[in-house]
């Protein structure tokens, strides 16, 4: 049941995410125009770079290709970039009220007219290269006008448009997620309560493990309390014992915590794990203080750890009694 649940869940997430990813018609159109412009702009930039290379090969002055002047202020645009920026600004100003296609087209054509003339009377490869650039630049006019005159769909329109297109398969996927998750929950519950045939050998008897740990911590704390000035060997022994408790006692209890959660519920689990984690933290502290060679604080920390572990053991007994 567990694997069936995971499989159904995965199919559900796949369906939901795929149909959720689908763009509404309005956004598809915006994306299409944006993509067309981006790729055409890349072609235009490449054509411009080729043109500049052709000028260089023909040993012409940089002319239109001159880089912006070096200055302390923000870099200035080339004459060509300035003309382009001006045109874009004009289109953006109009876009504030979303221009009609004709208005946007007129603005784009005006911008193109500003950069189109071959004012230097170029000839040969540079002129041909400039012609190719102009052709690429001209191809941008219509898509840009179309994009400027197509308003971006608002959030609600996007939501409604998407739901109309993908809502049903998305909801189907969502239902599969819930079915898969419920099956997964049942399987997990069966596994944790021992009804599963999975042969789980990591089961922990919490009543025994927690009581045993509480006892061991109390014994360690009492032994530490009896030592006023431990020798380095005694300190090392205590450190080894702390490390063993951290790894072999706390580790398995923490690892198997979902079994406990399943048995006594989330609130009961919190009731036990609050003091248990406190005991673990105080034990960690005793390790740190031992490493810092501060024996009085080590003794205090071990005592606090034992105290909190006793609290955890009492809480567990109470919760287990309630759970029957």
């Amino acid at each position: 049941m567990k694997y069936l649940g995971i499989l159904i869940l995965a199919i559900g997430v796949g369906l939901c995410a795929a149909f959720g990813a689908r763009l509404s018609d309005g956004m598809y159109e915006q994306t299409r125009l944006g993509g067309q412009i981006a790729l055409l702009e890349a072609q235009t930039d490449k054509a411009w770079a080729d043109y500049c290379a052709a000028r260089e090969a023909a040993k012409l002055e940089q002319g239109e290709c001159a880089p912006p002047e070096e200055a302390d202020d923000p870099p200035a645009d080339t004459p060509l970039e300035a003309a382009e920026d001006g045109a874009e600004a004009a289109v953006e100003d109009e876009a504030a009220q979303t221009p009609t296609y004709d208005e946007a087209l007129a603005a784009e054509k005006a911008a193109l007219a500003g950069v189109a003339p071959n004012a230097e009377g170029l000839s040969g490869p540079p002129a041909q290269a400039r012609g190719r650039w102009l052709e690429a630049r001209t191809a941008l006019v219509e898509p840009r006008a179309q994009k400027a005159s197509t308003p971006l769909p608002g959030p609600e329109t996007r939501l409604a448009g998407w739901f109309e297109l993908s809502g049903m398969p998305f909801l189907g996927g969502l239902a599969l997620i819930v079915i898969g998750a419920v099956l997964g929950r049942r399987a997990a519950k069966a596994e944790l309560s021992g009804d599963s045939k999975s042969g789980d050998d990591t089961r922990v008897d919490f009543g025994v493990a927690v009581a045993d740990l509480a006892q061991k911590l109390r014994a360690l704390a009492d032994r530490a309390a009896a030592l006023d000035a431990p020798t380095p060997a005694q300190r090392k022994e205590v450190q080894a014992e702390i490390e063993a408790l951290q790894l072999t006692r706390f580790g398995p209890i923490v690892e198997a915590r979902y079994q406990l959660q399943n048995r006594i519920g989330l609130a009961g689990f919190a009731h036990v794990f609050g003091p248990l984690s406190g005991a673990e933290r105080w034990l960690n502290r005793s390790w740190s203080t031992l490493a810092d060679e501060h024996w009085p604080e080590t003794r205090t920390s071990l005592a606090r750890s034992a105290e909190q572990m006793a609290e955890a053991a009492a809480a567990l007994a109470e919760e287990l009694k309630q759970a029957g």
Partner: peptide, 23 residues
Amino acid sequence: QGAAPLDKYAGGLAIGLGLGVFP
């Protein structure tokens, strides 16, 4: 200009809530 992708946020929100049921 109204560009918030509400549809994607809402779809994602529903998926996230659904996944929360899994243990």
